[in-house]
Amino acid sequence: MANSNIVLHVADVHKRFGGLHALADIDLQVEEGKTHAIIGPNGAGKSTLLNVIIGKLAPSSGQVVFDGAILTGRKPYQINQLGIARVFQTPEIFSDLSVLHNVMIPAFAKRDGTFTLNMLRALDSETTIREEAEHMLEDVGMLNRRDMQAGSLSRGDKRRMELAMCLIQHPRLLLLDEPTAGMSRHDTNTTIELLKKIKSRGMTKVIIEHDMHVVFSLADKISVLAQGRIIADGTPDEVRGNPKVQEAYLGGAH
């Protein structure tokens, strides 16, 4: 595997909370354009790892490198501006605003940067961004809900809208924290289809997921986390056949 294809490198990361060693010696390499799944039992440190990557938590040691830039120590908005978007476990949306505005806001961040004092411009005159947001909503099948207040959407729709909010920025790396958690089987399948569609566009994704059905339908590569350590790394087939994994995780579940 050529090293130049690595877009995200989590290098020797440790994270301690007091006496708890939440992440130990994590070394993770994500290839450009691939979908990399991180799985593991509850409390394995999956969300901690994602929070370290996105800058919400600082690692105790080690660093995260994205395309040559060190992410460790940067603020969340700076990390986003480098081309990393995140879908949260509980959808983080603008509940008081309309669905359309929710999707327009990230497009402004992409176009205008971290701060612009454009207070005398009319929002109604931003036709390019509005049309872009409408296309995005059409892509995720939510155009008919564009004028609804985001807070009144179902959980599945909130998640799809949050995905649209990330995708409109055309991020190079998309981080997904349990994108189908709490969804019905039908919603889960729609989301898988949607994520497959994005995959064909060549975006790199890191996905944390409990649902094995989702993981094995999407992932090119899987890392298995248990007690803060990576115990296995490889293609879905390799991981499925790994006895250590079956013992730590799959064996317990199935």
Partner: peptide, 23 residues
């Protein structure tokens, strides 16, 4: 204005604003 929409978004969800790339 777009600026006004950003202010409303800060009121609605400041965390999302930061993870969306806004200072």
């Amino acid at each position: 204005s777009p600026f006004g929409m950003m202010l409303k978004s800060i009121k609605s969800n400041q965390t999302r604003m930061q993870f969306t790339g806004f200072n």
